[in-house]
Design a protein around this nucleic acid. Sequence first.
DNA 1: CCGGTGGCCGTGAACGTTCACGGCCGTCAC
DNA 2: GTGACGGCCGTGAACGTTCACGGCCACCGG
Lengths: 334, 334
Amino acid sequence: MPGRLPGSAAARAVTIHDVARAAGVSRQTVTRAVNRMPGISESTRERVLEQARRLGYRPSRYGRDLVRRSSRTLGLLVGDLANPYYPELASAVLKRAARAGWHVVLAEHGGGPPGALEAFAARVDAAIAFTGSSFPEDVTGAAPLPLVEIDPQEVRGGRGRVELDMRAAVADAVEHLLERGTDRPVLLDLGQSPSRRGRLFLDAFAARGVPLARERVAAADLAGGEEGCRAALERRQRPDAVVAFNDVTALGALRALRRAGADVPGEVRVVGVDGLGIGAYVAPRLTTLALDVDAAAREALDLVLALHASPPEPGAPAELRRTVAHRLVVGEST
Amino acid sequence: MPGRLPGSAAARAVTIHDVARAAGVSRQTVTRAVNRMPGISESTRERVLEQARRLGYRPSRYGRDLVRRSSRTLGLLVGDLANPYYPELASAVLKRAARAGWHVVLAEHGGGPPGALEAFAARVDAAIAFTGSSFPEDVTGAAPLPLVEIDPQEVRGGRGRVELDMRAAVADAVEHLLERGTDRPVLLDLGQSPSRRGRLFLDAFAARGVPLARERVAAADLAGGEEGCRAALERRQRPDAVVAFNDVTALGALRALRRAGADVPGEVRVVGVDGLGIGAYVAPRLTTLALDVDAAAREALDLVLALHASPPEPGAPAELRRTVAHRLVVGEST
DNA sequence: CCGGTGGCCGTGAACGTTCACGGCCGTCAC
DNA sequence: GTGACGGCCGTGAACGTTCACGGCCACCGG
């Protein structure tokens, strides 16, 4: 009966002391044996490990983390897992983090009770935010939480960020659409004024002398894409190409086109943005501006681990910015 | 300069002592103020919180977890995030866990270097496993990690589990297919011998006097479904209904049917299993045996938190088993 | 024989928090 | 007037680990 358990949690009782006593050595020697540190003879190490096994000893991460001041826990904040975009990135981050010995706490932006974000930020040693919207400034509090944002809306100082550069891919896509013979393209865009990616498409088409109509969608999801595309089809000039805000929106457009009996890609071409794996699930396979999620995960993780390893010296600006480029992937929808 | 930093992590320095000194009170009083405990006057609490804000004090989770012996961290082990099945469940678990004040560490089964699972199990206070395959026995080590498995392959003692019951849904699906006029159904099944769910379909069709052919797929993914369906279409008796192992497989079948020019649901009906959100993304919308992921998440979380709160007394068997039923959702593919 | 060296191991302290307990002071009933 | 009581607050200890440092002993060169 090893005393009270405040949290009434599991009754773990075997500590480093128990092992030390059983092996007839000191705590420090047990530490050396368990953590493969030098300064211990092979025979003693064997004996200690044998006792540790026998007693079922597991080092307490609580004690260890306290003195180490790090639990190698990475927070990953994503928008909404229902958007297939995020699981793909999460998976990439997970795999890379595991390889570096880090664990990943996942959280959805907007999900959870008030204060959930603060609690999230307080529980991790570093964080990557990929939310679509921006990460609240104050959740990091006064503690200098190493934070890297992917594709941040507003640029803030003192944080790492991974920019997504789709300029070249947009040019390729426009070129590709024009080759396919597009005269009256329409953009399914989010927001009152053109989004950043929308602006890129508008400019690229304008540079080629082709006007790109803009149809505003209520949301960048399946229903939004379907409804937006339906509205666009009712224009006087029926569009012969649809450039969607993202892949999910494009899938909604595909459904609207199918329902309207329009042949894809015969009568109407469809292009998405993201390069979701889900694009491969549908027929016709989606043409899209694909993000290299592995690269994005790699850059973000590199950056955030570097930030964690060396404090964000106010003196050294360093390179806190990485860029990952999108790439045109031609499917069957164009 | 608050001393050395072993882990060379961020230079957090402001502790409960600093706040206590600044406010002219003791540590315990600071604790009472910060944690909204009784036994402190309102004016003192205000004063302490004011100083805490001013100094940017954040309680150290390391110290707190050490004494509390729990960090309210839940491990969620899933198969592969690339299968849309898992993000949906993860999202449901995430939301519920957040509401209960728990954080979720996500890990993929099979991903990561050797020892990753052990490290995972060692870092969480409780775990839910939903892997398709079974959770290794030894990763929990000697520590009695509260563990709940969803749809476990083998039943083990001493662990909670959430069973998925699709018996009724299978009966409904068979009834539905027969109503639609199905004579020659084929099952796209995984494995040498019939899987559990495959067995259910075989029995249900047999009970209605209709033979269900079985086509083995190499994998329960998109390519497997496509290839399996293609093979099935070459049978002498061309099937007029496809029952797929899961939704992703069904989507592969849909693609094969489209490629073969078969009308769905006119000539061939398609049924999946899982009820993925992705089923809504494709056309035609998939008819499927849907799992209520919210219910599954709820039951699993209830169970695992109960296990964590009260030790798994060897004396009391309790009810460590919950059941969640699948439900037939009729789409456009039948 | 002696001082130095290096391998092995142990002791005290620290990490930052919360728990158990006890002290102080004012109020109230008797 | 005195004892009890309750509100408010502080002190020591504990959680389990690792770090810094120092001691012991055997060995070796001089």
